[in-house]
Design a protein around this nucleic acid. Structure first.
Length: 445
RNA sequence: CGGGCUAUAGCGCAGUCUGGUAGCGCGUUCGUCUGGGGGACGAGAGGUCGCAGGUUCGAACCCUGCUAGCCCGACCA
């Protein structure tokens, strides 16, 4: 993409409404624009990152054997009355009436809708286990939206639902989801720690939240620092293996890690003192096992050979995709701007032409732009007629992990400069070597 | 939902106390000079001063009501 043709309205100054760093940087980097309190338009660059995160989530869900689908944002109130949650959910649920005076709602979550789909199509234990998921916009009418996309009213969430014949099978689904979530966050370049949590209005027995550590997090968290050393890495996982998933579940849930909701001071005291960590975290996902809560109230049963018709055991799982962007920025930025992990960066590399209009510089940039594009590096070429300082400041702000700087001075010696956004370190290379190096870097992402 | 604050050009702000027909910086447009970390000079464009009502000869400014947004708290992916 050429910056001269891209819609990237960057701001030099901090918008006064934005208090926390991710909100400020998303506004300044031209990623989002507020429409109303807690409701945002996603401008091209923000949208691009959102799509990248979605792709990673989809990829890992499908790898775990789950079925992608899409449910409507508007739901009928009838199903919610059937489950009993129409009354329970309270004011967070946005209720509307259509032209025929029918009660409708903007879905805050989809347990009812998915259970309805399930019960009218699945009758036999032979069709289980089954996990369906979607990535769809949700609406929760928060009392106090804040922090930009971190607590919006409208937000993009991956929500998945598993159906199993009995509790042991459902617990495997629970473990499988935990493993796939660990992989998902690692692929985004993030460390998200699973912590035992409270179930809230979704209800249920077992639940873990995934938290990204950040000063601005809304939850207070307590953990054994040992958990930070755990990596899933590229180990092969058989998602159908109960033992393998359970082993990984044990590995990650054995070290103490809890939010303030479930914190147990006595247990925490047993962690060696030097490993007792207290900090704040941003919740970016949660997994639940809630047994037969919905299948009983909504009569979702399957036939079994031994026990006749039994209500299915269910769980649900969510990843806050739009919130994740805020969490990534909270965890990865400096005073100049965002620092994107390579896995989710909107563009692979920024090309800065220091002297736009200079024949040699222009030609060198064009050549770089073409080869980088051809090799899938997805470059953003700053071809504006700006001065060097302005171009650098914009690049630092939007936070692409790599920058190639092209100017007459270097070109005299046949070199360009390759700079890491994260470390600030530069090296002079021929254009060909710079591209080659980037291709290698992104091959590992 | 309780408490606090704010609303004036795309963004950041001054002007309100003491009423007299709106200003600064950035950005933006045009031109010239520049050209390796937000450059200089010159010329321009851009505002129903959140909305409604009131007081007044006259309201961004005073009064009343409303709306929107932000922050703290309680609540939550």
């Amino acid at each position: 993409m050429r910056l001269s043709k891209y819609f990237l309205p960057v701001l030099k100054e901090n918008p006064s409404d934005a208090q926390i760093v991710s909100h400020r940087l998303m506004l300044r980097a031209g990623m989002i624009r507020q429409a109303q309190s807690g409701i945002y338009s996603w401008l091209p660059m923000g949208f691009k990152v959102l799509r990248k995160l979605e792709n990673i989530v989809h990829d890992e869900q499908v790898r775990a054997g789950h079925n992608p689908m899409l449910m409507p944002t508007m739901q009928s109130a009838d199903l919610w009355k059937e489950s009993g949650r129409y009354e329970d959910y309270g004011k967070e649920m946005l209720r509307v009436t259509d032209r025929h005076d029918r009660d409708m709602l903007f879905g805050p979550t989809n347990e009812e809708l998915i259970t309805d789909i399930f019960r009218s199509n699945v009758k036999s234990y032979k069709d289980l286990p089954l996990t369906l998921y979607q990535i769809q916009w949700k609406f929760r009418d928060e009392v106090r939206p804040r922090f930009g996309v971190m607590r919006g009213r409208e937000f993009l969430m991956k929500d998945g639902y598993n159906f199993d014949v009995d509790k042991p099978s459902a617990m495997h689904a629970y473990n499988r989801h935990l493993v796939s979530y660990l992989r998902t966050y690692e692929r985004m370049g993030m460390k998200a720690i699973p912590m035992r949590a409270d179930s809230g209005p979704i209800g249920g027995e077992d639940t873990h939240e995934f938290l990204v550590l950040a000063e601005t997090g809304e939850s207070e968290v307590f953990y054994d620092s040992k958990i930070l050393d755990l990596h899933l890495g590229d180990r092969e996982v058989d998602y159908d293996s109960w033992d393998q998933c359970a082993a990984i579940f044990d590995e990650w849930t054995t070290p103490y890690a809890r939010t303030d909701e479930t914190h147990d001071a006595e247990l925490f005291a047993q962690v060696p003192a030097e490993r007792q960590m207290t900090s704040r975290g941003i919740e970016v996902g949660q997994i639940f096992y809630f047994g037969t809560k919905y299948s009983e109230s909504m009569n979702a049963k399957v036939s079994t050979p031994d026990d006749g018709d039994v209500p299915v055991h269910m769980g649900s799982h969510g990843i806050g995709v739009s919130r994740m962007i805020g969490a990534i920025i909270e965890a990865s930025h400096d005073d100049k701007g965002i620092i994107w992990p390579e896995a989710v960066t909107p563009f692979g590399v920024g090309i800065v032409n220091l002297k736009q209009g200079d024949e040699e510089a222009d030609a060198a940039c064009e050549a770089l732009y073409k080869s980088a594009t051809a090799l899938g590096l997805d470059p953003l070429y700053d071809d504006r007629n700006e001065r060097a300082g302005g171009k650098f400041a914009s690049m630092d702000l939007i936070g692409l992990p790599w920058r190639i700087t092209v100017g007459p001075r270097g070109l005299k010696n046949g070199v360009v400069e390759l700079t890491s956004r994260k470390t600030g370190e530069s090296e002079e290379l021929t254009p060909e070597l710079a591209i080659e190096k980037l291709v290698k870097i992104y091959a590992d992402v």
